[in-house]
């Protein structure tokens, strides 16, 4: 099992290198720094000097992959590839266009992001799994059919409408919580409750339907028939036998997103004005701050890969066949 985890860990390295390379290609090769400078400076101020100045300010004036002019090791390190891409492995992301240090910014924005993402994740998982179990318990009844129809309808509504509708109803019409904003400490609760609820409600449709099919798949297995033949009650069959086995596929989908919770939610944070990483990303996209977008792409991938590793490990916890082989 340890060999298995080490192997997965080793496998992560080439993937991270691949991600890094893709971002490098995307941000520096598809468009040269000159192109980007020209676009950012706008048509009016484009002079060769302005472009050079813009590049120098951001360290884009170096050669791409090989600096023949530099001495020694710097031939390889004093380049855009090394400066902008390889340094990301050390979590050195450089500065944003507004001059702030990206790593510091990310650190300070992680808190608010997690404050929404964690409750959403836990509550969402609990609610959807319970709802799916309920549907499965009442399978082949009108309740089940109605529930599935509800799920399909719910997943046919764009996430934007959940947010807009929720904000409008709860904050504006009923005036229950502030429409947007954020503060640290316990005060945060009143700002967080609505985005969390909206996000949970918005996610029920697709997930509950998916979990329901997983449960139904399990419920037709032979060992469930065995469990019933033992005289166990339907609830016990459902919780002890079906749920435990269905957890294995559920885990693949769930554990992998846990690290990504750090990234926050783009839509919710921007709608609710929460200063997390999601809104940071959106703002960066809006202002075309490539350094920030590049950093977020890299962090997102690192977190995803961590998620994959966690998934592998969680497999060993729930599935004895993986653990003991």
């Amino acid at each position: 099992m340890i060999a298995y985890i080490i192997r997965r860990l080793l496998y992560a390295i080439p993937i991270l290198i691949g991600v890094n390379l893709i971002t490098f290609l995307l941000f520096f090769v598809v468009n040269s720094p000159d192109d980007i400078a020209r676009m950012q400076l706008g048509a009016k101020r484009v002079t060769p000097e302005a472009i050079e100045k813009w590049k120098a300010e951001r360290g884009y004036d170096k050669p791409m992959v090989w600096n023949a002019a530099a001495p020694g090791v710097a031939k390889a390190t004093d380049t855009i590839l090394f400066d902008k891409s390889v340094r990301m492995f050390a979590l050195d992301f450089g500065r944003a266009d507004d001059g702030r240090d990206i790593a510091l910014e990310i650190k300070s924005r992680m808190g608010p992001s997690l404050a929404i993402a964690i409750p959403t994740f836990i509550l969402g998982l609990f609610v959807t799994v319970s709802f799916a179990l309920l549907l499965v318990f009442f399978r082949n009844t009108a309740l089940d059919v109605g529930g599935v129809v509800l799920c399909v309808a719910a997943m046919s509504i764009s996430g934007l409408f959940y947010i807009i509708g929720g904000q409008y109803l709860v904050s504006k019409v009923w005036n229950l919580v502030p429409i947007s904003g954020y503060s640290g400490g316990l005060d945060a609760g009143k700002f967080l409750i609505l985005p969390v609820l909206i996000s949970v409600v918005g996610g029920i449709g697709a997930s509950a339907r998916w979990y329901r099919t997983l449960f139904l798949e399990e419920i037709n297995k032979d060992y469930v028939r065995t469990a019933r033949a033992k005289g166990l009650s339907e609830l016990r069959v459902l919780f002890r036998h079906v749920l435990k086995n269905a957890m294995i596929p559920i885990l693949t989908g769930v554990v992998v997103v846990i690290p990504l919770l750090f990234m926050g939610s783009l839509l919710l944070e921007s709608f609710f004005g929460i200063p997390g990483l999601g809104s940071y990303t959106i703002d960066a996209i809006g202002s075309q701050d490539f350094a920030v977008v590049r950093s977020m792409v890299f962090i997102g991938s690192v977190l995803y890969i961590i998620g994959l590793l966690l998934t592998d490990i969680s497999y060993t916890l729930v599935d004895p066949r993986v653990r003991l082989n």
Binding site: T23, F27, M263, L266, M296, G300, S301, Y304, I305
Partner: peptide, 12 residues
């Protein structure tokens, strides 16, 4: 490709 979160890759 899968490891880069969808929106971010699309955004980039």
């Amino acid at each position: 490709l899968n490891s880069i979160p969808g929106v971010l890759l699309i955004a980039a």
